[in-house]
Lab assay of single mutants.
Amino acid sequence: HFTSQQLQELEATFQRNRYPDMSTREEIAVWTNLTEARVRVWFKNRRAKWR
């Protein structure tokens, strides 16, 4: 589960860029205190939901 702060950060990034690269995902991981893998999976799932 994600905190509302984490989701806000993830959503804001998603609005700007639906396909963040590795370095962007790592930055998000640092800001949100999540692993890069969790961030990558979140984006994958979010893109699926967005379609």
Rank of each mutant, 00 (worst) to 15 (best):
H1S: 12
H1Y: 12
H1T: 11
H1W: 13
H1V: 11
H1E: 12
F2Y: 12
F2E: 03
F2L: 14
F2T: 03
F2N: 02
F2C: 07
T3M: 04
T3K: 04
T3S: 09
T3F: 04
T3Q: 04
T3P: 02
T3L: 04
S4P: 14
S4N: 11
S4A: 13
S4R: 14
S4K: 14
S4Y: 13
S4F: 13
Q5C: 12
Q5Y: 13
Q5K: 12
Q5G: 08
Q5E: 12
Q5F: 14
Q6N: 04
Q6W: 05
Q6F: 13
Q6L: 06
L7I: 11
L7W: 10
L7M: 08
L7A: 06
L7H: 07
L7R: 07
Q8S: 10
Q8E: 12
Q8D: 10
Q8Y: 11
Q8L: 12
E9Y: 15
E9T: 15
E9I: 15
L10P: 00
L10I: 02
L10S: 01
L10N: 00
L10M: 05
L10D: 00
L10V: 00
L10Q: 00
E11F: 04
E11V: 04
E11H: 03
E11S: 01
E11N: 04
E11I: 05
E11G: 01
E11L: 05
A12Y: 10
A12G: 07
A12E: 11
A12P: 02
A12I: 10
T13L: 15
T13I: 15
T13H: 15
T13N: 14
T13E: 15
F14V: 01
F14A: 01
F14Q: 01
F14D: 02
F14Y: 06
F14L: 01
F14G: 01
Q15H: 10
Q15P: 04
Q15Y: 07
Q15T: 09
Q15M: 10
R16W: 10
R16Q: 11
R16D: 06
N17W: 08
N17K: 04
N17M: 08
N17P: 01
N17C: 13
N17Y: 06
N17E: 06
N17S: 06
R18L: 04
R18W: 06
R18K: 14
R18Q: 13
R18C: 10
R18Y: 06
R18M: 14
R18H: 13
Y19F: 11
Y19M: 05
Y19Q: 05
Y19H: 07
Y19K: 04
Y19T: 05
Y19W: 11
Y19P: 01
Y19G: 01
Y19D: 05
P20R: 01
P20I: 02
P20C: 05
P20E: 03
P20L: 02
P20M: 03
P20N: 01
P20G: 02
P20V: 02
D21A: 06
D21I: 04
D21C: 08
D21L: 05
D21E: 04
D21V: 05
D21F: 03
D21M: 05
M22N: 06
M22C: 09
M22D: 04
M22T: 08
M22W: 11
M22A: 10
S23E: 12
S23M: 12
S23F: 09
S23A: 14
T24D: 08
T24N: 06
T24V: 08
T24S: 08
T24M: 13
T24H: 08
T24L: 11
T24W: 05
T24G: 05
R25C: 04
R25N: 03
R25H: 01
R25K: 01
R25V: 09
R25A: 03
R25L: 10
R25E: 02
E26N: 12
E26K: 14
E26Q: 14
E26V: 14
E26P: 03
E26D: 06
E26A: 11
E26W: 10
E26G: 07
E27V: 09
E27S: 10
E27G: 07
E27I: 12
E27T: 10
E27N: 10
E27A: 13
E27K: 13
I28W: 02
I28P: 00
I28M: 03
I28R: 01
I28Q: 01
I28A: 01
A29Q: 01
A29M: 03
A29V: 01
A29R: 02
A29E: 01
A29D: 02
V30A: 14
V30T: 12
V30H: 11
V30R: 15
V30P: 00
V30C: 11
V30D: 09
W31I: 15
W31L: 15
W31F: 14
W31R: 15
W31N: 15
T32Y: 08
T32W: 08
T32N: 07
T32I: 13
T32Q: 06
T32F: 12
N33G: 15
N33K: 10
N33F: 06
N33L: 06
N33Q: 10
L34Q: 07
L34H: 03
L34A: 08
L34M: 09
L34D: 03
L34P: 00
T35I: 04
T35R: 03
T35L: 04
T35A: 05
T35G: 03
E36K: 03
E36S: 05
E36W: 03
E36G: 03
E36M: 05
E36T: 05
E36A: 06
A37K: 13
A37W: 13
A37P: 11
A37Q: 13
R38A: 15
R38M: 15
R38E: 15
V39W: 03
V39A: 02
V39I: 09
V39D: 02
V39F: 03
V39Y: 02
R40V: 04
R40E: 07
R40D: 07
R40G: 05
R40H: 07
R40K: 08
R40F: 07
V41E: 14
V41W: 14
V41Q: 14
W42D: 00
W42S: 00
W42G: 00
W42N: 00
W42I: 01
W42R: 00
W42V: 00
W42T: 00
F43S: 00
F43A: 00
F43T: 00
F43P: 00
K44T: 08
K44E: 12
K44H: 09
K44D: 06
K44F: 08
K44M: 11
K44A: 10
K44Y: 12
K44I: 15
K44R: 11
N45E: 14
N45A: 13
N45W: 15
N45Y: 13
N45G: 07
N45M: 14
N45D: 10
R46W: 05
R46C: 03
R46Q: 06
R46T: 03
R46S: 02
R46K: 05
R47V: 06
R47P: 00
R47Q: 06
R47L: 08
R47K: 02
R47A: 04
A48F: 08
A48E: 10
A48D: 08
A48V: 09
A48M: 08
A48H: 09
A48G: 06
A48I: 11
K49D: 07
K49S: 09
K49M: 10
K49T: 11
K49C: 09
K49Q: 12
W50S: 08
W50A: 11
W50V: 08
R51T: 09
R51A: 11
R51D: 08
R51C: 11
R51K: 11
R51M: 11
R51Y: 12
R51I: 11
R51P: 07
